[in-house]
Deep mutational scan, measured.
Amino acid sequence: MSIQHFRVALIPFFAAFCLPVFAHPETLVKVKDAEDQLGARVGYIELDLNSGKILESFRPEERFPMMSTFKVLLCGAVLSRVDAGQEQLGRRIHYSQNDLVEYSPVTEKHLTDGMTVRELCSAAITMSDNTAANLLLTTIGGPKELTAFLHNMGDHVTRLDRWEPELNEAIPNDERDTTMPAAMATTLRKLLTGELLTLASRQQLIDWMEADKVAGPLLRSALPAGWFIADKSGAGERGSRGIIAALGPDGKPSRIVVIYTTGSQATMDERNRQIAEIGASLIKHW
Rank of each mutant, 00 (worst) to 15 (best):
L74F: 05
V31H: 14
E108C: 06
P224W: 05
E119S: 15
N98Q: 00
D174R: 04
I256R: 01
T193L: 07
N152T: 04
P172F: 06
M184S: 08
L282M: 08
R91W: 04
S201M: 11
T186R: 01
D231H: 09
G39T: 07
N152V: 10
P143W: 10
L137S: 14
V42N: 13
E145C: 05
D113K: 06
K284M: 05
T131A: 03
V31A: 07
C75S: 12
A84N: 08
L197F: 06
I206L: 10
K190V: 15
L136K: 14
Y103K: 02
A245S: 10
T261R: 12
R220T: 04
R273H: 10
Y44L: 09
P143S: 06
P60W: 05
A246C: 11
V257R: 01
S281Y: 13
L38K: 00
E108A: 00
R63P: 09
L135M: 09
R273T: 14
M115N: 15
L192V: 02
D83G: 03
L150N: 15
P224S: 07
D83H: 06
D155I: 00
D161F: 04
S80V: 03
L218R: 08
L146D: 08
I171E: 02
G239W: 14
T147W: 05
T138D: 06
T267M: 06
S57C: 15
A266G: 07
S201A: 13
T186C: 10
M67A: 14
V101S: 12
H151W: 14
L111N: 07
G216A: 06
V157L: 06
G39K: 10
R273Q: 11
L192I: 05
R91F: 14
K30G: 15
L47G: 04
G194K: 03
M180L: 07
R41E: 00
S80K: 15
Q86M: 06
D269S: 05
A266T: 04
I244E: 10
L282E: 05
A235L: 02
T198G: 12
S240F: 05
P253R: 11
I171G: 03
H110F: 00
T261W: 12
S201F: 09
A246P: 07
T158D: 06
D129M: 00
I256N: 12
R91K: 10
Q97E: 15
V258I: 03
W208D: 02
T193N: 11
Q203F: 00
S57R: 09
A185F: 02
N272K: 00
F58S: 00
L160C: 08
H151E: 04
Q88T: 14
A40V: 10
K213V: 14
S201Y: 11
S68C: 06
D212K: 14
G85Q: 15
I45G: 00
N98G: 02
G154S: 13
R271C: 10
G76V: 02
L191A: 06
H285I: 03
V82H: 06
G234R: 00
M66C: 00
S51T: 06
S221H: 11
L100E: 09
A200R: 13
F70I: 01
W163C: 12
E169R: 09
N134G: 07
E210R: 13
L197T: 06
G52Q: 13
K30A: 15
G52N: 15
G85H: 15
T147P: 04
L100W: 01
L38W: 01
D177T: 12
S240C: 04
P105R: 04
A77G: 00
F70N: 02
G52S: 06
D48H: 13
S254F: 02
L38C: 11
E175T: 13
V29S: 04
T267K: 14
P249Y: 11
S201T: 09
K53F: 06
G114K: 01
T262E: 14
I278E: 14
M153N: 09
I244N: 11
D36A: 09
K213H: 07
Y260F: 02
L89N: 04
R59D: 13
A77R: 00
